[in-house]
Design a protein around this nucleic acid. Sequence first.
DNA 1: CTGTTGTCGACTGTCGACATTATCACGCCA
DNA 2: TGGCGTGATAATGTCGACAGTCGACAACAG
Lengths: 225, 225
Amino acid sequence: MGEPSRMPLFGVDTRPLRQQIADALQRAIIEGDLKPGDALIETDIATRLGVSRAPVREALQLLATSRLVDVVPYKGTTVRALTATDVAEAHTMRLLLEAYAIGQLAERRGGEVLGALRDTCREMASLATGNDERALLDADERFHHLVIQGTDNELLASVWSSIHMRVRQIIALRNRRIVDPVAIARNHEEIVAAIAAGDAETAERLLRTHLDRTTVEEPGDLVAP
Amino acid sequence: MGEPSRMPLFGVDTRPLRQQIADALQRAIIEGDLKPGDALIETDIATRLGVSRAPVREALQLLATSRLVDVVPYKGTTVRALTATDVAEAHTMRLLLEAYAIGQLAERRGGEVLGALRDTCREMASLATGNDERALLDADERFHHLVIQGTDNELLASVWSSIHMRVRQIIALRNRRIVDPVAIARNHEEIVAAIAAGDAETAERLLRTHLDRTTVEEPGDLVAP
DNA sequence: CTGTTGTCGACTGTCGACATTATCACGCCA
DNA sequence: TGGCGTGATAATGTCGACAGTCGACAACAG
């Protein structure tokens, strides 16, 4: 995941247009503004943004690497459909990657990131009593991101990021209320405790429970035929 | 991995140029013709191939998704360096993905692909006595590809493919002789046996041994500073 | 009525030219 | 001598225009 590669003086973004466009489109997709099946027509996007088609094309290819869009030669680009299988596969992969990361973290008793994990847990706990779902989801995302980063494995982080984009899209499309924020916050604390105790097995089991609750469940309400 | 997306009547390749160019460059990289650190200059490639820069740029972005090249805005594209860390991370991820796949396969006693796995094993056994290393490596690759495909998880397959490109590059750069082809062939037979027996644990252990032998070991001889 | 062929509109693929950026050698000056 | 602006140069980024392809529908032959 990217830190802003340059820090401009007055909000002038000097990154290549393809990245700015890709960011904008990605946001629109994972926020649900662009829905599965929607056609991404280069000419439209280009004129709408006031740029030429070249950077738009390159942006669309960037999105394809996160599997957010389907690029079919000579036919066009569409927001990728979300079948039940897609949701299940994303969940499986996410679980596989994060379980590995948790295991690694537990072996080192959390390493450098243990403190940051605890901070995030505290934040979640305080957010749980309020009703800012958005902030709670952000904190949750930060937590899992920290877990991945904790392994110091760039390849793992890269793969996880691309899959996480799809997960966020899934969560956005099914905008379901969080049922029990307090339980979720507590769950994370338990995970951190298991990591700190070096108990990889328990940490993985808790993680699995958490992910099962938040990402997988009847996907029928979000798939577009 | 890609079956040729169209079957032309007389070898006329109607795929977009970007894909043809990407294939050519990818082959050059994973065969070792292009070495880590080599600069991929759009103008050069374009004039050399007799095309314009646009499809070359898009091809380079495709390669970036497999992490075969580094694209730095306004600076250029280079064949990605292979540090010891890169090799280790690729190995870790490959092991993680394939171990999962083997486990899934074992749970179903091999499913549809068990026959194909056995065929490949027989092929490896017969190749082991000869000295066509290339053919043996191809068979080995086919075996692992079958394992991944056997899970019927497209996302897993996609992630594995992109990582496998790097693995092939690593293998090509350290062109070390295969020490004991017969042992390798036998190892695969044992893996298949464990899958057929539904013994996931043994299958994963055997796989780990096999991969440790073939991909990881003193990478000092292939890293370029 | 059915299957094939021609045509049209919309969109993607490719091209060559121009704008912008990074790099590095060069000369200036303390 | 050594650090620092300052050009020249070579590469990438972007643009507008043109060519190629696809899908759909109309026209036609059997």
